[in-house]
Design a protein around this nucleic acid. Structure first.
Length: 441
RNA sequence: GGAGUCGUGACCGAGUGGCCGAAGGUGCCGGAUUGCUAAUCCGGUGUAGUGCAAGCUACCGAGGGUUCGAAUCCCUCCGACUCCGCCA
């Protein structure tokens, strides 16, 4: 959620940011509605609090009058307080409506953008920051991962349709092994060398938890909602570990000495892919279920920008170790996701597409998520004085998407005979084998 | 699923319907004392809204209700724990 103070004090600034995101005018106009509601709310609150103050002091007097045996006077005051209570009830009923509307509108407003977010509307407008690695050259026509995987007998996209239809896959033999190897490789890298704490978390979350990170209320269609309630509340399958992991410390005041808290987490991810019908239908690039190792950091506003760059670097390290050529792009205004302030994507080279495809997205959310989650930290004392809690900054980034990494390996390391060389860094995780070879016909 | 106990501040833990935003303790911060450490003593120490400020208002798992007045009484829900049953 955007800081309500900014909304109240500089609504035009907020609108400017919304325009940079190419938001609809209908969204932009809600800024004015929120500001109006804030004003109305304030007069209501002032009146209500005033009445409550009167009630509190009257109640004390009534008690004293009773003790003094002045029942008649007490009775008169009681009537006055009751009248005041009626007015309070009216005001509170109106406040409920005002606040619900205000909250609903505010929850649908995306985060403000960082100054360095470039103009642009689509991914074609994302400027390239840097590229790494040599694009492989082939003396044969490189195959798509679907063909490479099928020939190796490790990827079965036909039988999986018998189970759950399109956008699911069955990995078999060394395919399943490579999936597991990549997960372990990523986790070992991020825990052993990059200082993350590994966590395992629930794969279904309550609705209010998904509100904390910003997937709800706006993007319910992108998630799989469970038909039954879970412990009394609507729940969703997680589309990313970001949701459960970022929410771990919600509603807490964290010790600044513990920041940044750096989590690495492996989870399956479930996405409905509503609205992407027809896109990437072939292969395992876009699945309803996929695996991902995610990095989630809770940090201070002062550190956040530098931490963001470091997280990008950690994700790049994973790709470098695997020898996958990639580039880093900066999201333009139209591409920065709802909750994000600034975002870099890592895109891996895919020979079959003759292009780079997203394999990691690393975002900085400022206090947008932590305001929703009420997640704060206590700054160090200044001149012996305890400081007020402040909202933490949250970051997250894929490190990496496992299925897409496998796609990149199969395509970039494929050989003319249909075999695939296994990147050296991955070999210890695959029983030391150096190459996947198609079975004899 | 059955039976029962319980949810209070960063943490532990008191709390008879008004004098409770809440005793006491721990932790933390400052000060005093002390060769160092340890110990002791004094003071301070929740969050949020509003206001120049004094102050006022709200929050004792969540939401309703009773009452002039609720941490305290009633209802519903959520959560934790113990025992029994079932079970990967």
């Amino acid at each position: 959620m955007i800081n309500p103070r900014v909304l109240a004090e500089d609504p035009e600034l907020v609108k400017t940011h919304l325009r940079r995101r190419h938001a609809d005018e209908s969204v932009i106009s809600t800024v004015d509605e929120i500001v109006e509601l804030q004003t109305t709310r304030k007069t209501h609150v002032l009146e209500r609090d005033d009445l409550r103050a009167t009630r509190n002091s009257s109640s004390k007097q009534i008690g004293a009058l009773f003790k003094a045996g002045k029942g008649a006077e007490a009775g008169e005051m009681k009537a006055a307080v009751t009248a005041g209570n009626d007015r309070i009830k009216v005001l509170e009923a109106e406040l409920d409506v005002i606040e619900a509307r205000m909250h609903d509108l505010a929850m649908h407003l995306p985060n403000l953008l960082h100054d360095t977010v470039p103009a642009g509307k689509t991914e074609d407008d994302n400027p390239v920051e840097r590229t790494w690695g040599d694009i492989p050259t082939f003396d044969f026509t490189p195959q798509a991962h679907v063909e490479v995987g099928a020939k190796l007998g490790i990827l079965d996209l036909e039988r999986s349709t018998k189970l759950t239809g399109a956008r699911f896959a069955i990995l078999r033999g060394m395919g399943a092994r490579m999936e597991r190897a990549l997960i372990n490789f990523f986790l070992d890298l991020h825990t052993g060398e990059h200082g993350h704490t590994e966590v395992m978390v629930p794969y279904m979350v309550h609705a209010h938890v998904a509100e904390g990170t910003g997937q709800l209320p706006k993007f319910a269609d992108d998630m799989f909602k469970l038909a039954g309630k879970v412990n009394g509340e609507d729940a969703y399958l997680i589309p990313t570990a970001e949701i459960p992991v970022t929410n771990i410390h919600r509603e807490e005041i964290l010790d600044i000495d513990k920041l940044p808290i750096k989590f690495a987490c492996f989870t399956p991810c479930f996405r409905s892919e509503a609205g992407s019908a027809g896109r990437d239908v072939r292969g395992i690039i876009r699945q309803h279920q996929f695996h991902k190792v995610e990095m989630v950091w809770l940090t201070t506003p002062e550190r956040a920008e530098a931490d963001h760059h470091q997280m990008v670097d950690h994700a790049e390290t994973a790709l470098k170790r695997l020898g996958i050529p990639y580039r880093v792009v900066r999201h333009c205004g139209g591409e920065v996701s709802f909750a994000a302030h600034k975002c870099f994507d890592l895109e891996a080279w895919l020979p079959s597409q003759d292009n780079y495809r997203e394999i990691s997205s690393v975002s900085w959310f400022t206090d947008f998520q932590s305001r929703r989650m009420k997640m704060r930290f206590r700054p160090a004392p200044v001149e012996g004085k305890k400081q007020k809690p402040r909202l933490v900054h949250t970051l997250n980034g894929s490190g990496l998407a496992v299925g897409r990494t496998m796609v990149a390996i199969l395509e970039n390391y494929q050989q003319a005979d249909g075999s695939v060389i296994i990147p050296e860094a991955l070999r210890p995780y695959m029983g030391g084998i150096e190459r996947l070879v198609p079975p004899a016909e």
